[in-house]
Every structure is written in C-alpha cells, then in structure tokens.
Simulated scan of single mutants.
Amino acid sequence: MNSKARVRVLMYHKVSVQQPDYLTVTTEQLRAQLAHLRQQQYEFITVQQWLDAWQGTSSLPPKPVLLTFDDAYQTTLTLAAPILQEFGAKATIFVPTAYVGQHSDWDQEAAAPLLSVEALRGLDPGAFELGLHSHHHQNYKYLPAEEMAADLAACLRFFETHQLPFVRALAYPYGGRPKGTLAREAMRRLFREKGIAAAFRIGNRLNRAVPPDPYELNRIDVRGTDSPAAFARKVRWGKWF
C-alpha cells in the first residue's frame, strides 16, 4: 500500500438547497467542494477500502479522501447523493440506529427527518456504505462501561436484524470518548470484543495511511460557514491552517 499517503476524512452532517449553517452545507457548496477535490486529484475511498489497505489486501491511491455523513439525514439521499454521483464520489453514512426513520431529536432547535430502513437498504452500494454512530446518539465520553456496551450491542443488533450491510467502524457521537485511562481501555476492549475495527473522532488532522491507533482516527469538520478558501486550507492542512 501507499504508506506515505495521508488520508483526509471529511465530516458532513446536513445538506440544504440554500440555508447553510454550522452543521449544514448547501448543494452549491457541496458541488464546489467535490469539484475542488477532483481538481486537486484526490481520489474517493470508503472505510472498507482503508481497512483492506491496513491488511495489505489492497492499496490506497496517492491522495485518498474519505467522505462521511453523520446521522443519516434524508438530505444525504435527496440532495447529496445526486451530487456525489456527478463526481463519481463514495461516502460513508454513520447511522444512529435508534432514530432510523424518525427525527434527529438531539437537534433541539431544528430536528430533521432521518432515512428509513427501506431507504438505507435501497442505497447504491457502489456509492454508499453504512457505519455505526451508536444506538441512542449519546456521548460515549459520559457513558459508564455497562451502558456503552448495551448501546453498542443494540446498534449492531439493528444492522443484523434488518440485514443491512455495514462496515465495522464507528463515529463517536459528538466526537466524545472516555478520558480516563481505565475507562478508555474498557472501551477499546469492548470494541475489540465486538469486532469494531476503527473509530472516528473529530480532531481535524490528517491520518497516516496505517494509523498508530485505529480508534483515534481524525475527521475534518466541514461547516456551511466555511468559505471556499477555508475549505481548501482544511483539506490541505487539517488543523494546521
């Protein structure tokens, strides 16, 4: 594999036609951002491709970029998917399984509809893969080990019960995970027991092709309040811009 590659992981949430905010990019912004990535010769990968590269069964392109969408908002399908198709892009949707087919109740000021089981099942597997975003969208930073184990088990059970293909990777809700050494190790042990191969924080840094810690992968927070120049700097440098 290309051991010198740096993997950029971009974190998106909502998409809107014309109302950008902290968690929402417009269709115009998304189209311009994907065009910038193509112009700069980045190549879209999936989490599974990255995991396969760790195992030596495949190689990463020279400039890999991974697109992720948290929470499985309906706009990921209705607004983002056609734009991704225009650019031949792939993306990972991290799903909070207790809320599938409902609304994002954690968005207290602007709860939005989420994709149903049928919609998730109908996604083009060549364009989208599904990942874990916990069951109840709770911050793992504050969950006792027993509650975390129950939440993760419920999340996995949802995918298995509904026969939804998924990659065994988790995006921490709110980017949170335990701070204490013992609590952090208990979480890692739980992940290993459940076969979770990777977990994503926020961090806004670039990742090594073979990361030193698969449970501390960094994502770059893409905001609707970012200018085109700010987006370009984030993609190039991560946090250090």
Rank of each mutant, 00 (worst) to 15 (best):
T97P: 13
A98R: 09
D107V: 06
D107N: 13
Q108R: 12
A111I: 09
A111P: 15
P113A: 02
L114Q: 11
L115T: 08
E118Y: 03
E118L: 08
A119V: 06
L123T: 14
D124P: 10
G126L: 05
A127N: 07
F128Q: 09
F128L: 10
E129K: 03
L130N: 10
L132R: 04
H133M: 04
H133W: 06
H133A: 06
S134T: 06
S134N: 02
S134H: 01
H135R: 04
H137V: 09
H137K: 05
H137N: 08
Q138R: 11
Q138F: 01
Y140A: 07
Y140G: 02
Y140K: 01
Y140N: 08
K141D: 12
K141T: 14
L143M: 14
P144M: 00
A145L: 03
A145N: 02
E146Y: 00
A149W: 02
A150E: 11
D151A: 01
A153E: 15
A154T: 07
A154H: 10
C155P: 08
C155H: 06
L156A: 10
L156C: 10
R157A: 15
R157M: 02
F159H: 06
E160H: 11
E160G: 07
T161L: 04
H162V: 00
L164P: 02
P165F: 01
F166S: 01
L170A: 01
Y172K: 05
Y172V: 04
Y172Q: 02
Y172M: 04
Y174C: 01
Y174P: 01
R177A: 14
R177Y: 15
K179H: 14
G180Q: 15
A186T: 07
M187N: 04
L190D: 03
L190S: 04
F191N: 08
R192S: 07
E193L: 05
E193Q: 12
G195K: 05
G195N: 06
A198S: 05
A198Y: 02
R201T: 14
I202N: 02
G203K: 07
G203Y: 03
G203M: 03
N204A: 03
N204E: 07
R205H: 12
R205D: 11
L206Y: 04
R208I: 00
R208P: 00
A209M: 08
V210K: 12
P211H: 06
P211R: 05
P212E: 13
D213R: 12
P214Y: 10
P214K: 08
P214T: 12
Y215S: 10
E216V: 11
E216K: 13
E216L: 14
R219E: 09
V222Q: 09
R223Q: 15
G224Y: 11
G224T: 12
T225Y: 11
T225D: 15
D226N: 07
S227K: 02
S227T: 15
P228L: 01
A229F: 01
A229W: 03
A230H: 03
F231L: 02
A232T: 03
R233F: 04
K234R: 04
K234V: 00
V235C: 05
V235S: 03
V235M: 07
R236E: 13
W237C: 10
G238S: 09
K239M: 14
W240I: 14
W240V: 15
